[in-house]
Design a protein around this nucleic acid. Structure first.
Length: 565
RNA sequence: GCGUCCGUAGCUCAGCCGGAUAGAGCACCAGACUUCUAAUCUGGGGGUCACAGGUUCGAAUCCUGUCGGACGUGCCA
């Protein structure tokens, strides 16, 4: 990793001059402008106070030390004490040649478990599920890439009060024919009907409660129904996941932890973390936490989301050697997780727990709501995206086979949808907009895929004309255009690391876009195959490495790179 | 009331572990396809980084307050 390697060099220089205490503070960063070189260190400015010296003097000393390192073409002190570093072309060339590859497994680091997607059984997946699914999947890929052992867990909402209602609704209003055609849609319909009917007839609620109790007592008929709801829902979800290229390692729904919950409640009470209040079992928090009380068990004896979450943590703690637990959910659940994490800590569970929140998706007109009927189903979105992509392929590349057009349309349409989400800062709320989400121009997945396809095409053409790439490094960086591209490429590995550390796939999206832009500038201004042999080989290898980087980076976002489009 | 997040170009958003003239896409204007895929590229206009203080050599970035928006807030998940 170039940033890391570079950082190490700067840190060592600092350590030699000013002692080990300062070694971690290289303040290395990309320069905002290429006239300040490739990287800058602001160490001198930041350490001036602690060292009791003038920033310029510190900078000068460090610059002299760095000048002895042959990877730098130029070291300059500028302004109040910036140290600007320019790498040699040879170093950049070597770094580009080396490329980016996944790291071997890190032994004994423990397993990272990621909770994401988590749809509620008996409801169709809609665009609201997209963010958790796509962001979680990307984080999974990023951590795997970095060598972590990762378990992707789809924490299904397969247990809870909705099933009592559903059972009542099923027996009263199910349309067999519709259910046969599209079971989950029909389940949703009768569920909504239940809500409406129950407003008029409160006795229905009572009936639903009774059915729920029977379900929880493992009444065979109700259990069979519940299992059916889960089964038909999963069948439906699987279709969506398969198209999206999303795979889970485990799908333990909340029901999986149901039997563990009484023990959790007991442990909470024994350790005096929770106590009885108004008939319920409740955890209270220190005033300085500003957290409201968390109910663990209702006064009627039923457990809640918080209980199940704690049981889940306990289960994982027991069954896995854990590195960390990551939860990808919308930002509304932030306080909930703060409560849970706080409680886990007080129980003495020493686990690295991380909530990865993201902003809500809505419409210009307001929220999605089943009652208003403005919910956009995930399947509709995917179909529309793929259809639009298909139309564009048809227009641009009519000579491709139908089969290939289909494959490209699928990759491009789904890529566009995923990228629209992943290229944005997680925390921003997003307004759903068909045209934005399905745009194929500018900063989009199709732009990156197109760049990759161009490179592959160029490579094929090179092979046809007998230009063969040798195994060794033949990249010569001969101008600013190539240099800018090379520099952007070498920054990718460190970007992946940063994306992992901060759980922000959008950093990778940004870097890929930067690479692709620089490549397209290169492509449009510098011919490859028409040059003399050494230049042609150099540019071809630079191109191929760019293609590999784009493919790998897109892979981390869960987006497929295509050979042509 | 309390708590969390957000407020950056006409629109959609990056940048937020402080760093040099605040970036991109879309839209708009002007150009580039007999040349390796024009889903591309080149150039242009466009900004009180919500507002006011503070910390600092330096603030879109950190702190405090105000305004605006979203969300959460004792028995849903």
């Amino acid at each position: 990793m170039i940033d890391t390697a570079l950082e190490k060099r700067v840190e060592e220089a600092i350590s030699r001059l000013f002692g080990r205490d300062y070694a971690q503070d290289s303040f290395l960063q990309k320069t905002a402008n290429s006239r300040f070189g490739d990287y800058q260190s602001n160490f001198a400015l930041n350490a001036a106070g602690r060292l009791g010296k003038k920033p310029r003097d510190i900078a000068a000393a460090l610059a002299d030390e760095l000048k002895r390192d042959p990877v730098f073409e130029r070291i300059e002190v500028a302004g109040p004490g910036f140290i600007n570093m320019t790498l040699t072309r040879e170093f950049l060339s070597g770094a580009v040649y080396q490329g980016i590859s996944p790291r071997e497994e890190q032994p004994d680091e423990g397993v990272v478990i990621i909770d994401y997607s988590s749809p509620n059984i008996a409801k169709p997946m809609h665009v609201g599920h997209l963010r958790s699914t796509v962001i979680g999947d990307s984080i999974k890929r990023i951590y795997r890439f970095l060598g972590y052992k990762v378990i992707a867990d789809n924490h299904l909402g397969d247990w809870g009060t909705q099933f009592g209602k559903l059972i009542v609704a099923y027996r009263r209003w199910l349309d067999e024919k519709e259910y046969g055609l599209s079971p989950v849609d029909e389940l949703e319909r009768i569920y909504v009907k239940f809500a409406r009917e129950a407003e008029k007839d409160p006795a229905l609620e009572e009936e639903a409660r009774r059915e729920l109790v029977r379900l929880q007592e493992h009444d065979p008929e109700n259990i069979a129904l519940w299992e059916e709801f889960v089964r038909v829902s999963l069948q439906e979800y699987d279709k969506v996941y398969q198209r999206l290229g999303i795979e889970f390692d485990i799908m333990y729904g909340e029901s999986h932890y149901h039997d563990l919950m009484p023990d959790i409640v007991r442990e909470l009470q024994e350790k005096e973390v929770a106590r009885i209040s108004e008939g319920a079992v409740v955890v209270f928090f220190d005033e300085k936490e500003s957290l409201h009380p968390c109910i663990i068990r209702k006064k009627d004896g039923a457990f809640l989301y918080a209980t199940s979450e704690l049981a889940c943590i306990a289960f994982r703690k027991e069954h896995y050697h854990l590195h960390s637990l990551l939860y990808v959910t919308d930002a509304r659940q932030e306080t909930h997780f703060k409560q849970i994490f706080n409680i886990a800590g007080r129980l003495g569970w020493n686990i690295d727990l991380v909530h990865i929140p993201f902003g809500l998706m809505g419409l210009k007109e307001g929220h999605f709501s089943t009652r208003k009927g403005n919910v956009i189903k995930l399947k509709e979105l995917i179909d529309e995206a793929v259809a639009r992509a298909r139309a564009v392929v048809e227009e641009k590349n009519p000579e491709l086979s139908e089969e290939e057009k289909d494959i490209i349309a699928e990759a491009v349409g789904i890529g566009a949808v995923k990228y629209a989400d992943l290229s944005q800062n997680r925390l921003s709320n997003v307004t759903f907009d068909w045209d934005k989400m399905l745009s194929f121009e500018g900063n989009t997945a199709p732009y990156l895929q197109y760049t990759h396809a161009r490179i592959r095409s160029l490579y094929r053409k090179a092979t046809e004309t007998g230009l063969e790439l040798p195994p060794e490094n033949v990249i010569l960086i001969e101008n600013e255009t190539e240099r800018a591209l090379a520099l952007a490429l070498t920054q990718l590995p460190a970007t992946v690391r940063r994306a992992a550390d901060s759980y922000r796939p959008n950093l990778i999206a940004d870097q890929l876009f930067d690479i692709a832009q620089k490549y397209n500038t290169f492509y449009n201004s510098l011919p490859v195959l028409k040059e003399d042999r050494s230049t042609a080989l150099s540019r071809l290898q630079l191109s191929v490495r760019t293609g590999e980087a784009l493919k790998a980076g897109l892979g981390l976002l869960g987006i497929t790179a295509v050979e042509r489009m």
